[in-house]
Simulated assay, not measured.
Amino acid sequence: MTHRPPLAIIYEHPDWFKLLFAALDRRNVAYQPIQFQDHHFDPENAEAPAPLVLSRLAMSSFLRQDEHPIFYAQSLYASWELSGARVINGTQALAIDASKARQMALIQSLGLDIPATRVVHRQADIIAAAKTLRFPVIVKVNIGGSGAGVSFYETLEELTQAVANGSTPKSIDSVLLVQEYVPARGQQVVRMETLNGNFLYAISLNTDGGTFDLCPADVCLIDKPRITVREYKPDQDAIRAAEAIARAAKLDIGGIEFMIDDRDGARRFYDINGLSNFVADPLNVLGWDPHEKLVDYLIQAIEKIREKAA
């Protein structure tokens, strides 16, 4: 058996994890960075690159490459887990992260509010589904990222024309969500970050409504000047809800997003995101760097694995 570091980090985006790598280097944590590009595995020799693997797979990877690793990762992580490795945000979390339909079902099962939603797998069924909802509606791809694959329709006639001319969104897994458009109170959405099933911090993202792309990381905000990011102090009900969602989703690290429906004041949860790039400019927005908390968590996980192996 070749010598392995205690930690491997597998990722797709070339720039998003420099701050994490820098934090690990400062703390002298040995790790192996692995990019999905050029990666392959042998199911007959499925030893993981490390006993602990951190998944940093972005659902938006399909926007950057046609041969994206989203479905590949499902098989890869299963293979590593079967070999005895622990994968942070592994197969169970990935199954939720890669399906907005499953996210809606999970959130609703916890007794929490979601946008009124219909799920279809054929373009031809969009109209029938939409007729059971209040307009305006959005059509959303099941696997998306950075706001991709979300279209807004004010009327049934507008949606019918879009279906007829083939301009409605197309999901890479052929599953679509038709949802009532939720007018967010104050044009504000909230993203609550969790770590190990516990609340970490929250931010509010305010937009003029001109985009569904509300990624709060540095590389995401470069071309989105209409979005402002601030720290948000959620109430205990919101914290308990986010923690319940994260634990039910087997999400080791990730974000839970909600908005307040301006029509009735309901807190509607609409997204579970397994990739936390963390907020841009955290020292100014939060007063502390969440990467340090993540490194603490990784060090503790490494120590637990070592104790179990001893």
Rank of each mutant, 00 (worst) to 15 (best):
V119F: 02
D252A: 08
P234F: 05
A73Q: 04
S75M: 10
Q123G: 11
G111R: 05
I227G: 06
S146T: 09
F135N: 01
Q188D: 06
D218H: 04
T194C: 10
I127T: 13
N28Y: 14
V189N: 10
D271K: 02
R26F: 01
G145P: 11
L294P: 02
A244G: 06
Q37V: 06
I9H: 00
Y232F: 13
I127F: 09
H40L: 10
N89V: 05
D261S: 05
D213H: 04
F41Q: 00
R86F: 13
G254W: 11
F17P: 11
L20K: 01
R240W: 06
A128F: 02
L20V: 06
L112R: 10
I222H: 08
P216Q: 14
R56V: 04
L159W: 07
R27F: 01
D289A: 09
E67D: 15
V29C: 08
L214T: 05
D262I: 04
L57C: 09
D218W: 00
D218S: 13
D213E: 10
R56H: 04
S55T: 03
L54C: 07
L133D: 06
F212N: 09
P5N: 07
R64H: 11
G210W: 00
D38A: 10
S146V: 07
P69S: 09
A105G: 09
T160N: 12
A246K: 08
W16G: 14
G147E: 03
M1L: 10
Q37R: 08
P115Q: 06
L76M: 11
L275F: 05
D208E: 07
V87F: 15
R268S: 02
Y72Q: 03
A73S: 13
I127W: 11
I302L: 01
L294W: 00
H3K: 10
E158G: 15
K18N: 11
V175D: 13
A164L: 03
L195A: 08
T211H: 01
D213C: 09
V53P: 12
D235Y: 10
V219T: 14
C220L: 02
G111H: 12
I222A: 14
G210V: 04
L19V: 08
I305N: 01
L283M: 11
A116F: 10
H291R: 14
R240K: 13
E157N: 14
L298I: 05
H121L: 05
T132N: 14
D38C: 12
R4Y: 15
L205F: 00
Q179I: 01
I222Y: 00
M1V: 09
A50T: 04
I302P: 03
K170C: 11
G147V: 03
Y77H: 02
P290Y: 02
T194W: 08
N273R: 05
Q187W: 09
P282A: 12
E81Y: 15
Y77K: 00
I222N: 12
D235A: 06
V190F: 09
I203W: 01
P14M: 10
P115R: 03
D289I: 03
I305W: 14
D262C: 04
I272S: 05
E292H: 08
P33S: 08
E154M: 02
F258V: 01
V141S: 11
V137S: 08
G210S: 15
